[in-house]
Nucleic acid binder design. Structure first.
Lengths: 252, 252
DNA sequence: CGACACGTTGAGATATATCAAACGTGGTGG
DNA sequence: CCACCACGTTTGATATATCTCAACGTGTCG
């Protein structure tokens, strides 16, 4: 599989041309497989290349004093996991795999070469890092304004939409081989409480999360519980099985 | 006052040269004053220019279904409030003033002109938007892992450090003309609980927040309660009155 | 088969929210 | 200059969501 096939797939901003995609592809110097739950980068390390996720799931996280981690980003195939490390040079967080993963590496020198000659391309890469920032903001909304059920539902709805955009969800379910503890580190809850929320969702026939798979029984209700409005993902309108709320509701 | 004087002041990344600063200054087409609590931009609006905050405080926020807002970013003088609107074109959140504010406007056409001819400068602007993303991530940590006292303390410690970098805090106190309700919308708490936390901080002689002013009695304790580690701000080492934790503690 | 990681459940503790009311205080109009 | 109003702050009593601790269940893999 080409590494860059999924990058910015079905996004409304920063759409890459075939030429740009090919150039990025050529800049890949290394492809490899990472085991599950492996740390790729520690907070504070200097970077000389960036990582494209081709298959599997990765996270970015920050630890507190007791070593409990807060996951601040969740990555799906096609995500340029640490492209922001190119302009920033040092990262303020760590990066790890959640599942076994396949990655491709692009040296910063190559990115420099590509962007020095092509302002438009540089602007697209810039925009792609801002999509991550947009997702950060929605996560802030999630943690600051939603209760436990809303947070879990929001993550499941968001992941459904993102996976839909890359062909890994048809809107009725998707594979998600992560633990309830991972989910708790994403949602700022305890794994025990996540478990109770999941039971409630199962009993209420909203969705199930069992043996590494999410089955969505009632997408509309899931997204309502989550107050999910996919605007922030900048996805093409027809992508994914997302019902989405009538925009007026949220904007009203 | 020159609009761009404070932009990226005392940051370790994306430091601007005098020439770059002057060019940005020349790109300013408009300066004006905004009243307190005025909305500058609504989520979803298309943008043709970006806003530099010169004086006062502004926020970016997302509303939930009941119209309660979650503040996702807090801006101090010298911040390019919506530079990310240049590559993104449409924003996923709203922007408003908290206090009376003074702003300068830079048209996107001018930004295009400046960056088309200067790749290095473009990369710096890119990096500056990534500093915001870094702050978003720390806020996720704050909401996901800290209790009420920690969250309030974290915001006060962060603001102390950021204001220190632009000469508006000497580490013992600073002006912060916002309400406890604003604070609650930043920290994801109720204003009543924020009030109780503030009382505790006052009684414990950590800091006071009264009549629009923060007085820090014990910065080290404030930062410990907040688990505050300013790495994510990418500030010059000697700036601000921040004590900061020994890095080893947090990284361990 | 046993070990280990992950999931599930219950009982009780605790942090934070909610509801209600009183208290400043600065600004405005009479 | 006073009276009043609006807004923000403060406090108390009570409700509730989530956490903590502890135990038990279940599937997978060596």
């Amino acid at each position: 599989m080409k590494s860059m096939n999924l990058f910015l797939r079905n996004r409304t901003v920063a759409k890459l041309s075939d030429v740009e995609r090919a150039r990025l592809e050529q800049a890949v110097t290394d492809r490899r497989r990472l085991p599950a739950r492996a740390t790729l980068l520690e907070r504070g390390e200097a970077l000389s290349h960036s990582t494209m996720l081709i298959a599997g799931f990765m996270i970015r996280y920050i630890d507190d004093l007791e070593g409990r981690r807060q996951i601040v980003a969740f990555h799906v195939p096609g995500d340029f996991v640490d492209l922001h490390g190119y302009p920033l040079k040092v990262l303020d967080h760590s990066i790890a795999t959640l599942t076994q993963a396949q990655i491709a590496t692009v040296p910063h020198a190559a990115l420099k070469r590509l962007t020095d000659n092509d302002v438009e391309f540089a602007r697209k890469l810039w925009a792609s890092t801002l999509l991550d920032a947009s997702t950060h903001r929605e996560w802030l909304f999630r943690l600051g304004r939603l209760d436990a059920a809303g947070r879990v539902a929001h993550f499941l709805a968001e992941t459904n939409a993102r996976l839909g955009a890359i062909g890994l969800s048809d809107g009725t379910g998707y594979d998600l081989p992560i633990t309830q503890t991972d989910l708790s580190e994403i949602t700022g809850l305890t794994s025990i409480h996540v478990n109770r929320v999941l039971r409630m969702m199962r009993e209420e026939r909203v969705c199930t999360f069992r043996s590494s798979r999410v089955e969505i029984a009632d997408l509309e209700r899931l997204e309502r519980i989550a107050q999910f409005d996919p605007t922030y993902l900048y996805l093409e309108a027809d992508v994914a099985g997302t019902q989405s709320l009538d925009k007026e509701i949220r904007h009203g």
